[in-house]
Design a protein around this nucleic acid. Structure first.
Length: 794
DNA sequence: TGGCCTATTTTTTTT
DNA sequence: AAATAGGCCA
């Protein structure tokens, strides 16, 4: 038997041994998927396929690195191209930049950059943002890009959904601005490349021919753009192998389309499908819990997960009073296990739904001196001082990078204020030139004070001095610019240092990283490549499996990893099915998959927990347990409640009708040996009590209305001739009562509508209006003064 | 213009 | 609770 296949199971071997034609590997969690993929690559190489004919696409650098090192072990010295979708596209775009209107030194805008550009585009497009936000517009445009809809297509679309109208007007302006800046955003990397392949058949067929064997990891997470790219490269040589698991699709909000994997067998004729259902990771109980949960999903391909690992401990379902107790108890449990059972910090991971939840854990861990790492990195490259320095590099590399210019033209402060910047921007917009160019022609801007012009001149000369060094090593370049800009002095002067924020140390770390880059890229190193690399790092890439630390991360970040002991915190309603994900069944299913992903990371031991109340954003709110908990097999769970410190069962919970679905079993008691804070826990509780909340506690309507109202303040009435709420109010009539359910109203921007609900009084009085295609809330007393009553109705 | 203070907003997940 | 935006004054 071939050495490559020796330690593979039959289905694994079947997949790894497949050479020509499309292949679908449905791989359950912990089924040795990476091993199959890497062994397949080794087998291809052994069968005479050349390394450069193989392309393996992943979603994170981390996954790519992992595969690279394993391929290296199996087939040393073979330069197989392994990397993320985005990096692949970025590199191809570098080659073919002119075909999409870019130059090869184009920049990649990160999210903060894109946000800045978006704001500018919204301003330039002269659209009203009174009832939408830059974020929302950005999200709509991003969504369009992921669906391969270009600005032209969106603008010419006749039937736009509400919310798309404004975005459709901003989109072309934003795109033009990016082009002027010789820049792309993340979505563009995919969109541009997909378009390039479609519009240049000769490029497409050339790449198709060259990249004969393509593999895509986590195929369930691909969006339409990625689908189109893969498809375009697999027409003449459909040797496409995809691996994935519909049950682990958790990026729908980023445009991932589950249909890509569900329909793979229809898309590619003669597919060979292999199911990897044996799990080598988790104990049977953990697997049963995961399986029971995911069975509640409809959109999936049933897999029968099994394992021959021995039974382990039941999954613990623990109930805490609040987030602080939760954090403390986790820290105590981990501490006790390290000292009592000889486990290591790196054996533990804590997952949560959102990054903000790691805060209290951090405190608890720090207090006990427990080493931990938070994997929501990106943070490093988001720090102000780092972004500032990188902005210099970006501008040096690409003089059109307007976002970078605006960031640094007055950093460190050199007397170029907001006003000057906006004049430069206007001048640049007027002439369709980059802002740096406008800065060079500062003398032509008449409205500018002489002093300001001089200061801008200083900056331009500084820039030119830096620019000369563009070909130096990154380290030298950084040191030189820090010197020239007196950046250290600036930091000393302006920044406040704390134990969680040390700007000077961060700068040192950046330089260290640059030194490393310079060494690794002694041959091919370039500013271009460096910036591409730092632009495309992700949070999970920062995860250091080798460090002996407890890992704190979101469930999204946890995909692909495994840990002996896992804690999942805040398994709570409105948080685990997140409140923003409750609009459709599809979204709920994605939330369920998210929990499934979290659970299946655990090898030996797992605890799920929720709190009775949780403090978020400064306010304490009562909490309802996640409905997903009712879907778990109770015989595999052991429920434990930690000590009740206050009387939770106060009058607030009197007289509530609990739903029938909460007939969970009685809670088992827990020996103090489990490692509780003080051993005084285990008060058996009625599970129902913590699972339901009175209606008035969960109303967030006020806030929504207020926000909408404030935005509306900015809206200027269109003078319809009708008496508006503001008119009525200032005329001293008794107007507001006329705004009642059923009243017909007219809004200058939304048009005619009907009031469907009224609430609040005084300045808080608000109405909900159903317009033709959309329902919107108004605070009529002072904010929506332009909401006019139409006579005779209501 | 720039720094400091206050008011407001944040609302998931991330290449 | 923390970050940001806006406003005010030197």
């Amino acid at each position: 038997m071939d050495a490559i296949f020796r330690d593979l199971t039959a289905p694994q071997r079947e997949a790894a041994g497949h050479i020509d034609g499309p292949l679908l590997i449905l791989a359950g969690p912990g089924s040795g998927k990476t091993r199959v993929v890497t062994h397949r690559i080794a087998h291809l190489l052994q069968s005479g396929v050349r390394a450069h004919q193989i392309l393996a696409l992943t979603f994170t650098n981390k996954a790519a690195d992992e595969m690279r090192s394993r391929v290296e072990r199996l087939a040393p010295g073979q330069p197989v191209w392994l990397g993320t979708f985005h990096r692949f596209c970025a590199q191809q775009l570098r080659r073919y930049a002119p075909l999409v209107g870019l130059s090869e030194n184009y920049s990649i805008y990160d999210m903060a950059d894109a946000k800045q550009a978006m704001k500018r585009a919204i301003e330039a497009a002269e659209v009203s943002t009174s009832h939408t936000s830059p974020e929302q517009i950005a999200a709509t445009i991003s969504d369009a890009k992921n669906r391969l809809i270009t600005a032209e297509m969106m603008t010419s679309q006749s039937s736009l959904r509400s919310g798309e109208t404004i975005a459709a007007r901003v989109y072309p302006v934003y795109q033009k601005q990016l082009l002027t800046a010789n820049a792309v955003d993340f979505d563009d990397l995919l969109l541009h490349f997909a378009r390039l392949l479609r519009e240049n058949p000769e490029v497409r067929s050339e790449l198709d021919r060259r990249l004969k064997y393509i593999m895509v990891d986590e195929y369930q997470d691909t969006n339409l753009a990625q689908y189109a790219i893969v498809r375009a490269l697999s027409i003449d040589h459909p040797n496409l192998a995809v691996t994935g698991d519909p049950d682990q699709s958790i990026y729908g909000w980023r445009g991932a389309d589950l249909n890509n994997i569900l329909d793979f067998e229809k898309d590619y004729p003669n597919v060979k499908t292999v199911r990897l259902e044996q799990n080598y990771r988790s104990t049977p109980n953990i697997l049963r819990v995961a399986d029971q949960l995911i069975r509640h999903n409809r959109r999936r391909k049933q897999k029968d997960l099994f394992t021959d690992r021995p039974e382990g401990d039941p999954v613990v379902l623990r109930i805490y009073d609040d987030g602080y107790q939760e954090a403390d108890d986790l820290a105590d449990q981990i501490d006790a296990a390290i000292h009592g059972e000889g486990l290591r910090p790196s054996d533990f991971a804590v997952f949560c739904r959102m990054n903000a939840l790691t805060r209290s854990l951090e405190h608890a861990f720090r207090r006990r001196g427990l080493p931990y790492q938070i994997v929501n990195g990106l943070e490093f490259y988001q720090r102000k001082e780092i972004k500032d320095l990188l902005a210099y590099l970006h501008l040096i590399n690409n003089p059109s990078h307007d976002v970078a210019l605006q960031r640094i033209i007055n950093t460190p402060t050199r007397g170029v204020g907001a006003k000057t910047v906006s004049r430069l921007r206007d001048f640049a917009d007027l002439h369709g030139i980059p802002m740096l160019e406008a800065a060079r022609r500062v003398d032509e801007i008449e409205s500018l004070a002489k002093r300001s012009a001089t200061m801008v001149g200083h900056f331009v000369r500084l820039y030119d001095r830096l620019r000369v060094k563009a070909t130096a090593t990154i380290e030298d370049l950084l040191r030189y610019l820090i010197e020239e800009t007196k950046f250290s002095e600036y930091l000393e002067r302006t920044s406040v240092e704390s134990d969680s924020n040390n700007p000077v140390a961060n700068v040192d770390e950046l330089i260290n990283a640059a030194v490393e880059f310079d060494m690794q890229h002694a041959e091919d190193g370039s500013l271009d490549l460096y910036l591409e690399q730092v632009s495309l790092v992700s949070d999970i890439d920062a995860f250091e499996g080798s460090q002996d630390r407890v890992t704190l991360m979101t469930m999204h970040a946890s995909k692909g990893l495994e840990f002996p002991r896992v804690f999942i915190i805040a398994v709570e309603d409105e948080l685990l099915p997140h409140r923003r994900s409750r609009e459709s069944e599809d979204q709920i299913e994605e939330e369920r998959r998210l929990l499934f992903v979290g659970i299946t990371r655990a090898q030996q031991w797992l605890q799920l927990s929720f709190c009775k109340s949780r403090s978020m954003r400064g306010v304490v709110r009562p909490v309802v347990a996640s409905p997903f908990l009712t879907e778990l097999p109770r015989e595999d769970l052991r429920m434990v409640e930690s000590e009740v410190k206050q009387n939770f069962f106060d009058d607030r919970h009197d007289g509530i009708d609990y739903p029938d679905s909460w007939d969970l079993p009685e809670i088992a008691s827990d020996g103090a040996a489990e490692g509780d804070v003080d051993g005084t826990d285990v008060a058996p509780i009625d599970f129902d009590d913590v699972c339901q909340l009175p209606d008035d506690e969960r109303d967030s309507g006020d806030r929504v209305r207020e926000t909408a109202a404030k935005r509306l303040k900015k809206t200027i009435g269109a003078g319809s001739g009708l008496k508006t709420a503001a008119d009525l109010l200032s005329a001293g009539e008794v107007p507001l009562a006329a705004y009642r359910e059923g009243s017909q109203v007219r809004h200058p921007e939304y048009g005619d509508g009907t009031i469907v609900a009224v609430s609040g009084r005084g300045p808080k009085r608000s109405v909900r209006v159903r317009f033709a295609d959309e329902e919107t809330s108004f605070l009529i007393a002072y904010a929506a003064g332009d909401l006019a009553l139409i006579d005779g109705a209501g």
